[in-house]
Amino acid sequence: MDPKRMIGRIAFGLLVLGIVVWAVFPFAWAIITSLKAGSALFTVEAWPSQPSLANYAAIFKEQPFGRNILNSLLAASAVVALSLGLAVLAAYALGRVRFCGRGLLLFVVLGVSMFPQVAVLSGLFELVRWLGLYNRIGSLVLSYLIFTLPFTVWVLTTFMRELPKELEEAAMVDGAGPFVIVTRVFLPLMGPALAATGLLAFIAAWNEFLFALTFTLTDDARTVPVAIALMSGASQYELPWGQIMAASVVVTVPLIGLVLLFQRRIVSGLTAGAVKG
């Protein structure tokens, strides 16, 4: 191998290494820290000398963390289900039905997602109170739809447009109405798009902080990010770093699991063989 190529290879390797470290280090550090106890937190080492799971036990014993996880799970699942359901129906209308003002409507949907969360916070707060949803999961589901719906609608509309028109026409000749077309012909073909957008919506809802902080009051109603941020130690002057890191690890693992689970679905080309040969 000539030296020029060698140098290129090494440089490329270093670059990859840099990216991997940049991406993985924070999480690795969280795992390491979560296994430490007491003052061991403040010694720098690659692996704790006395690893213990005490922090993991503590977050469930000293904090209502199980309840927080359940809250997050409920909120995120409801958001995913609602936004996919609404977005599929909207995507059919926006992608398949020609009507006046379609482009404008799509633009407005996109425009909504451009407001910073803070800008709508106080208005939403009033709305949530008026609906009687304050300090309930419902308030989060409602507010999360604001940022999940625009991109689910956009992605699914684009995907729906790409589906061959003949399929819809064949279904019409077979006697299917719009609802049957959407649910029995298009929906099964949209697996990859649904998996991808659903996952993104889930992650967005799972990680959301500002709304969750504002619309919940008690520990029991909090979601994971808020619970972690507000975790307190024995005294006002102590931050339980070990527990915070343990909690972070606990809530990150399911996300990684979900991504791994769905990655095949995301990349599979389900429409292969639909038309032509």
Binding site: E169, M172, V173, G175, V185, G273, A274, V275, K276
Partner: peptide, 29 residues
């Protein structure tokens, strides 16, 4: 509507439902 006209259509691109078996494709209507 097309379904109430007593017609059946064969499309240039076949337009088979990709997620259904040949049997289900034929039986769908």
């Amino acid at each position: 509507p097309p379904a109430a006209r007593g017609i059946a259509m064969v499309f240039q691109s076949y337009a088979l439902y990709p997620h259904m078996t040949a049997y289900d494709n034929m039986a769908f209507g």
